[in-house]
Design a protein around this nucleic acid. Structure first.
Lengths: 342, 342
DNA sequence: CGCTGATCTGTAAGCGCTTACAGCTTGAGA
DNA sequence: TCTCAAGCTGTAAGCGCTTACAGATCAGCG
């Protein structure tokens, strides 16, 4: 395999010069730069990243640990992150946990072994071991998709709790009092927990003590949203609204209610969270919370790159996750109430 | 940073022994294995992948170059690939091209620089430079998502053309003769081209010369499916069926036709290709071709890992992409024809 | 014309690991 | 008891790059 010294020989210069034209072209005279560039092309030289990483103590790659990219919102965020990194000559290493926290430690370790210069995590609750490892090795990291002012770790995201509160308030302001909640598993998922917490807190502030039986926890696929909805409606036919902690579940609710012969929003309202591409096209279009995934991906890249280059970066970046009102929510069918408490 | 020699010192053994317990534990006595394992834990040792890669000439990572993971079918395939690799201690490096072929060469190069031990590409049409580079460096690679017996490169996928043919035949057998086609850009996308080719060939075999005006090419988002459908119906109100080369477009068609007050499949049939999770839930459920993405992801991992370990692997693996009949297709409204040609 | 400093180039010492090879120990068989 | 093979372990030579440092060159100036 052709290596740097071959290029040097061909160009009639030292290996140092070749390395310089690769890494600090401005430190090298135009003549040498040309000779070397030519030699590299003639020989089809591709530099060896392992050797470069070993010598420079930089891998020019960053790692991303996400629960999944197959379903939900992370794929777009990861994609934007990757694109941004690519612009700066960095590569993205992916690891998924499948929402299994024991896999997270393993994933982080594996990424560190690969020498990543920075790591993106999702959410803020992680094994202390993980934080310890990252800190001990001085690897920049950032918790994405969740903003929490009180947390001690850097984060880039939005306030899941607050926007979930806003979503629920929207339903309550419309006059709903009997609201069913479908949530994906909250265990080990601080974003979903925060959303649920926000919804419940909002209900409480309106004087509503949500009974356990009006909350169903299911996996996060459309089919689960359907079965959750069925269960909910069987137990509580009086419900006038269903609120999902994720769009996939709300989509399932929409479909299942339709199959049950109920008309949304006339008979019952539905709201989701994520603003997946499709929900603006559904009939009815879905009221939801827009999550700025691309923005997060890009900001994460910028943050990590900044930290790697030693720039000082803001510890916390809060992005907006705004309520998007569409057609799936309306006043409950025959209600006189406008809004009870405040 | 604690390194291998520190572990060796602590355990009272040579660096070679430490390396051995890491890489070939069976070559080492139980006593040393324990001492070393203990020392590693006490010191919190994490091995340096760059040094390992440089010394062993293996990076234990593989690269995947896909058009995009944000939309469409690739996310799940990539995820399955990643999971499988993880099981074997390999990491996945991701690069996306955004369907821009000039970025592909760049991506491959970047992955090679990172020392990936194998590469997955999508489709079979790639810059000859890419194949040359891969071959010259002896890096195993495989073309995924497209099976073509005549192509000289290893591939794991399905026959896009044949299943698209089957999809169109289904429509024609139902009696449709006026079929509109919505396709995503075919330039630089051999999978979509093959699908379109299959559809047109099928039409031709039924004696139908499809006019250009009954084919619209649009980007591959739902909204584009909608606008494409609108354009198609404006030009050709006589259409009795619309066939998309991807589900996103067919979904858009479904929504747009609904908005136009047409009932699917009573007034017009719609068929797609991909079998995205959601389409089995839509109303009507969508007739489509099921693409075995997870299977592809897994097979790609197995193939690449096999090649890396020097095992001989089948050059070509054909997977099934089967027609899934659902409710969006039916006989055209008022037709006497059953099926014209054969 | 020699000196100074700026600019460029080359030399060579690692970066932290793996592994070929050699040396040592041990047990079985003669 | 001696020999030999088998099984472990240690020594040390790289893997292909980057970069600190030193040396060379050259323009500008007194």
């Amino acid at each position: 395999m052709v290596q740097l010294s071959d290029v040097a020989k061909r160009a009639g210069v030292s290996t140092a010069s070749v390395s310089r034209v690769l890494n600090h072209p401005q430190k090298v005279s135009a003549r040498i730069r040309e000779q070397v560039t030519l030699a590299m092309e003639e020989l089809g030289y591709v530099r060896d990243g392992a050797a470069r990483a070993l010598a420079s103590r930089r891998s020019y790659s960053i790692g991303s640990v996400v629960p999944t990219i197959g379903i939900g919102i992370f794929a777009s965020g990861v994609e934007r992150l990757q694109q941004r990194l690519q612009e700066y000559g960095y590569q993205l290493l992916i690891a998924t946990t499948q929402y299994d926290s024991s896999k997270e430690m393993e994933a982080v370790r594996s990424l560190i072994e690969r020498g990543v210069d920075g790591i993106q995590l999702v959410g803020q609750e992680h094994d202390p071991q993980i934080y310890r490892l990252l800190t001990a090795r001085g690897i920049p990291y950032v918790n994405a998709y969740q903003y929490d002012a009180d947390n001690e770790h850097p984060c880039i995201g939005f306030n899941n709790q607050r926007s979930a509160w806003a979503l629920m308030r929207h339903l309550l302001e419309l006059g709903h009092r009997e609201v069913g909640i479908i949530t994906s598993p909250t265990r080990l998922n601080d974003r979903i927990s925060a959303r649920l917490k926000g919804m419940l807190a909002c209900l409480k502030s309106y004087g509503i003590e949500q009974p356990e039986s009006r909350i169903v926890e299911v996996p996060h696929r459309i089919a689960d949203g359907r079965s959750g909805t069925r269960a909910l409606m069987q137990r509580h036919p009086e419900l006038t609204a269903i609120c999902g902690t994720a769009d996939a579940l709300a989509i399932g609710a929409l479909f299942e209610l339709h199959a049950m012969g109920l008309k949304v929003p006339r008979d019952i309202s539905v709201a989701g969270y994520d603003d997946l591409e499709i929900v603006r096209h559904l009939d009815p279009t879905l009221t939801t919370v827009h999550v700025p995934v691309e923005q997060i991906g890009q900001r994460v890249a910028d943050y990590l790159l900044g930290r790697i280059e030693g720039r000082s970066m803001p510890m916390k970046t809060e992005l907006e996750a705004n309520l998007v009102l569409r057609d799936s929510t309306a006043r409950p069918r025959a209600t006189t109430a406008t809004a009870a408490a405040g």
